[in-house]
Amino acid sequence: MFDGWKIIVGLIIFITLATVPFWYDAAAGKGTDAPDIRIETKDVPGRDQCVMPAEYMRSDHMELLNEWRDQVVRGNQRVHVTADGRKYSRSLTNTCLDCHSNKDTFCDRCHDYMSVKPYCWECHLEPEVMK
């Protein structure tokens, strides 16, 4: 090969960069376990189900919260009526966190695992702080 050592050094750098995830994960040694999510909720009298089916909430909760925020802050529409006629106050702190008070296991584990940083807590107080 002509200029062989330069090309070989380049190839080694390329292969190293291209396989970063392999050796990073081997070094971190965290395996493939899913996050240990605790979704049990506090018993709140008169509340036995969520505003939306669990399946919808699992994937689309952020969109619902975003809608609620816009409707409350910009439209002053504070009451959410579910498909089957139940009424809820559109409030993260007073409605959602009433049942899901375990933020560190209910919210954070998944968000940390997926490296998602919700900006809810830039305005809202975290439940622990409120107690």
Partner: peptide
């Protein structure tokens, strides 16, 4: 890489 790595750098 947020899908490829844990913990995410």
């Amino acid at each position: 890489f947020r899908f490829f790595t844990e913990p995410v750098p």
